[in-house]
Design a protein around this nucleic acid. Structure first.
Lengths: 112, 112
DNA sequence: CCTTCATTTGAATACCCGTTCATATATTCA
DNA sequence: TGAATATATGAACGGGTATTCAAATGAAGG
């Protein structure tokens, strides 16, 4: 780690302009949530409609347990919200921001 | 997996409207690339300037080997491009799309 | 050529994380 | 209250992946 810098002036300038490690970590965390097939499927399904756990399990061909675990993660990340009606818990996307992120990722995926 | 559907009609409708597993998988893959602190740091640094491997290692406090590995991943994902000048390889972001995705993730991270 | 230096590569390690399975909680209804 | 059902939870297992370390590649300069 104690070498000569190849472009000392430039590298130090860029290093000074870097965002904080904390913020960059948080940004990575947001993307990490979207970076799983099951969660992306859930997000897209919820983009189409409010749904309960077993609906989502059916739609995504996953177990209810797996979906429940993933919904907890999505909820902790404040990407989805839930309401309870009797035995059934209905999940939906928390805001338009989530949809925006999804759409841009989708555009990019299509460009490959 | 062979239960009664709670909201059969709705669930089947949503399932029919789902994007293909392949596409949703690809979308998740894109986000997965962004979902790592080191790679996000690299992306942000390259947003500020074209840089070589050892510059990036200095800026991100990582080893050159680790950066090189991550740059390969970023290049395979078509998020960065490179040009060679003698011994030195200069990396830069491939297009504005990458910046757009980063910025939206950043906005979302700030909203927590 | 031989050395130096920037980068790459491969194998090994260690860690993270998604799923499964079994069980628990909670709510409805008989 | 007791059975049935929807969801949640916790532990454990397995697969994936980021980093490290050692070594290889490739280019410049003496």
């Amino acid at each position: 780690m104690n070498r000569d810098l190849i472009h000392e002036s430039l590298a130090k300038k860029v290093k000074n302009k870097m965002l904080s490690d904390d913020l960059l970590f948080d940004v990575a965390e947001v993307f990490k949530i979207f970076g799983d097939s099951t969660r992306i499927k859930i997000i897209y399904a919820l983009k189409l409609s409010e749904l309960c756990v077993s609906d989502i399990a059916f739609i995504t061909n996953s177990s209810e347990s797996a979906i429940s675990h993933q919904l907890r993660i999505l909820k902790q990340a404040k990407l989805v919200k839930s309401r309870k009606d009797g035995k059934i818990v209905y999940y939906s996307l928390k805001d338009e921001h989530v949809i925006k992120l999804f759409e841009i990722g989708r555009e990019h995926a299509l460009e490959l």
